[in-house]
Structure formats: C-alpha cells, structure tokens
Amino acid sequence: MNLIPLFFMSILSENIILNKFLGICPFMGVSNKEKSAISMGISVTFVVLCSSILTFLINKYVLIPTDTVYLQTLMFILIISTFVQLVEIILKKYSKSLYNLLGIYLPLITTNCAVLGIVLINIRSNYTLPESIVYALGSSIGFTLVIYLFSLMRVRMDKSPIISSFKGYPIALIAAGIMALIFSRFVGV
C-alpha cells in the first residue's frame, strides 16, 4: 500500500476515535480543556510511535520464530506499560518542563485503548515497518486532531441551552456522532 494514502486515511476517513472507537475514555474525559487535549495528544503520539516500532521488531524476531504468537496481547501490554514508565522516568530526569506538561497524562496512557489498538491493528494488517510507522503517526495525529476539535466544541456546548437530561455525556456523544459522519465522508482524499 502507498504510504501517502495510508497516512491520510489513518488521519481522516479511518480516524482512530471516530471510526475505530479507540481511545474514547480520554476523548470523553480529558477533552474539556484545549491545552490538556494537546498535551494528551503529544504524549500519545510519542508512546504510540515508539511502541509500534518496538512491537513490530519483537513480533517479527521473537514471537514468530519461537511460534508464540498467541502471547501477543500479553507481550504488547507489557511493552507499552514498561515504555510508559520509562518515558516518565527519562522525562522526569532530563526535561522537567516537558514532564510537567505531560505529567499526569503519562500513566493514563497505559490503559488507553488507542495505544494497544494501533499496535494490534498494525500487526494484524501485516504492515511492513515503514507502513506501521506511517500508520502509527497518522492515527496519533488523527487522535490529537479530533480530541482538540472536540475540546473546542465542548466549550460551546457548556454554554448552549440544552435539555437537562441531555446535558453532559449524551449531547457529547451525539456531537461525536455527527463528527464521525463528517469524517467518514473523507474517503478517497
């Protein structure tokens, strides 16, 4: 598959949140403030990129030769959680400002379905290493884009007159649905 169509497909028409439903918890939980939405996006991008390279190599050179592919889930979640811990320690030591920016969101990434989801989709679609990197990058940019746009919409929604039973999550879900409709029309861009 060509890398450029794959890149745009993973950002727009097959957006990780709106089309694959991954990473909805931070999408609903965090996206109240635009700044935290961006920080979350950056940390997810970083972890996704690194862990998809690492899991690709481990899958190809450890799991497949030893015929233990059924251990994928266990192995990958282990890699991701170790990686998150590692990033946290390194950032704490060498870049205090970046650590303070991402700080609270880092531990949350371990249980973010988007990370494990992207890694698993990469492996299951039999992507090559460049394709996996492009897909991981595109998906995390798509994640950041949607979570940022949505945080702006949430600010407007808080001020609008909405029936009390639909306030909060219900209206947010409906808005996300409309957004998903729009994004699904980007097929072929």
């Binding site: 694959k20 039973s165 639909f166 219900p170 409906i174 409709l181 699904s184």
Partner: peptide
C-alpha cells in the same frame, strides 16, 4: 450500523 450511528444511538439512549 456505521460508527456515527453508534455514537448517536448511545447518546439518545443515555438522554432518555
């Protein structure tokens, strides 16, 4: 059955 429908159905169900 599409992803948009999933969000909207759950949203309306929660509201009700």
């Amino acid at each position: 059955l599409t992803s948009a429908g999933a969000f909207i159905t759950l949203g309306i169900l929660l509201g009700i």
